[in-house]
Design a protein around this nucleic acid. Structure first.
Length: 474
RNA sequence: GUCCCCUUCGUCUAGAGGCCUAGGACAUUACCCUUUCACGGUAGUAACACGGGUUCGAAUCCCGUAGGGGACGCCA
């Protein structure tokens, strides 16, 4: 039987990085087995679902390269749960007709009161089944009832989960959850089960926070006589402090990673290694991931998110990326730092500078910050450290060398370096004593890529302009 | 509170009863390389939550304890 999986986010905000990890595992599992990976947007909560949010999710998925297989077969480009609400309602009503679900007229206020009371008494907070066995004649006027599942109250339920193992729960722990709301829209509990069945999903891969829902959804399958899919619940990703990863931890959305200059291949690689491993392998490109990934390798314990490690993985993929590609990716970040877009000539310079920039950065943002000086116009604002370099001696060095640089027959990195080395040797001073003043003059800072290379890239005219500007400045 | 799950270096993990003096990666420390900063290289610090079993032998199996996480909505 071919594998069919789905990723089913609700469009009520951004694409959560934890959700992306689940999607990645799901996608990898599907690709590994040559199956189909479907995208379903769970937009039944009309009050909270937004089109912007859907676009954000789609964007995130595309950025990560997690393409779904139903984008051409659905009119919207994905399966919309809300579009199928009639089907969900029909199933709910059928369950009532079959005696496995019932109408409940309890108001939300009434249920709130019930839960508060349970909490005060230290009892489990569960629906108490007050309408479970009441005859239809008791139905009050003017209240739109919900439909609840008539869950079994005795015995136990066992589900087999590929990751979590065989788990059994006493049915007395289950309550009668709402399947259809008073307004006729389905709840997640119903809609997800019905859609998974209708879409032919063979493997339900989702976050561990859905674990307890599984026991209850199992009854929907049973009541409808449907085959139960294979369940696989992924451990959650926690923040550095061990609690559920959220806004509080800084970067909960996939878009945050793009904005911070992480490469999608690095994010995927990092995410892949959370709760899953392949021996001692750390750098795992997508093709290898597809080859190696399977659900039996997924661990049960949650993982904490570590930005330092993500940074190092990102640094690896940055070094690996061709200069021109990287320059194109970094250009918007450089533009952000400079406050204006790069000209084609500047993009070309950025590309040529990339070999010097790449090994020094963990993110595109860092590349941009480091590269900004190449495109700087006017005088630099020097910090204390840089200003301190410019002693009268250093100024003399710069003045001497500026004159010599003007006379260089060929203005290349090697020529400038040879010139400076010869000068340092001749004067009996360290190379640093000539290189640092040049660095400050050309980059405006005490830290930069190798400075002779910078001079070579900037060219004679611009290099001399910057040196003279520094010499003119007090 | 009730139920479910989890527990190897700071973090991600390897580990399927003897290969474990517990391996790798990130982080961290020192040194080397070096025109600054990085990259790279070398070396180091650092963990089987605790307590009982089972066994000739346990990080690996069992039980308990503690700690952590998750779920308990007309959210998904």
């Amino acid at each position: 039987m071919p594998v069919i999986t789905r990723f089913a986010p609700s469009p009520t905000g951004y694409l959560h990085i934890g959700g992306a990890r689940t999607a990645l595992f799901c996608w990898l599992f599907t690709k590994h087995h040559g199956g189909k990976f479907l995208l379903r947007i769970e937009d039944t909560d009309r009050a909270r679902s937004t089109p912007e949010s859907i676009e954000t999710i789609l964007d995130g998925m595309r950025w990560l390269g997690l393409d779904w297989d139903n984008k051409d077969s659905e009119s919207l480009g994905y399966y919309s749960q809300y579009a199928h609400f009639k089907r969900h309602a029909e199933v709910a009503r059928q369950m009532v007709a079959n005696g496995v679900a019932y109408y409940c007229y309890a108001t939300p206020e009434e249920l709130d009161a019930m839960r508060s009371e349970q909490k005060v008494k230290g009892l489990p907070q569960r629906y108490d089944g007050r309408w479970r066995d009441r005859p239809a004649s008791d139905a009050p006027q003017g209240i739109a009832p919900v439909i609840r599942l008539k869950a079994p109250q005795t015995g136990e339920t066992t589900i087999r989960d590929v990751v979590m193992g065989t788990i059994t729960v006493q049915n007395s722990q289950l309550d009668d959850m709402v399947l259809l709301r008073g307004d006729g829209t389905p709840t997640f509990m119903l809609a997800a089960a019905v859609d998974d069945h209708d879409m032919g999903i063979t493997h339900v891969i989702r976050g561990e926070d859905h674990m307890t829902n599984t026991f209850r959804q199992a009854y929907i399958y049973k009541a409808m006589g449907w085959d139960v899919p294979v369940f696989a619940h992924m451990p959650l990703i926690h923040g550095p402090d061990g609690t559920k990863l959220s806004k509080r931890h800084g970067a909960p959305a996939v878009s945050d990673y793009r904005d911070r200059g992480y490469l999608p291949e690095a994010v995927n690689n990092y995410l892949l290694r959370l709760c899953w491993s392949h021996g001692d392998d750390e750098i795992i490109p997508m093709d290898k991931a597809i080859e190696w990934f399977d659900l039996d390798g997924v661990g049960k314990s949650p993982a904490r998110f570590d930005f330092a490690k993500l940074g190092s993985v990102n640094a690896h993929y940055i070094k690996e990326k061709p200069d021109a590609d990287l320059a194109a990716l970094a250009a918007p970040f450089v533009a952000r730092v400079m406050g204006r877009n790069l000209t084609p000539a500047q993009l070309d310079l950025l590309t040529r500078a990339m070999p010097d920039l790449k090994p020094r950065a963990q993110t595109l943002v860092q590349i941009a910050e480091m590269a900004a000086f190449y495109f700087h116009e006017g005088a630099f604002t020097l910090d204390d450290k840089a200003a301190k370099i410019l002693t009268p001696e250093a100024r003399q060095v710069l003045a001497d060398l500026a004159a010599k640089m003007g006379g260089l027959s060929e203005f290349t990195t090697e020529a400038v370096e040879n010139l400076f080395r010869a000068y340092a040797e001749e004067k009996g001073i360290k190379l640093g004593a000539v290189a640092q003043p040049l660095r400050v003059a050309l980059s405006g800072s005490t830290v930069s890529p190798p400075i002779f290379g910078v001079a070579g890239l900037l060219g004679r005219e611009e290099s001399l302009r910057r040196m003279e500007a520094i010499l003119r400045g007090a």
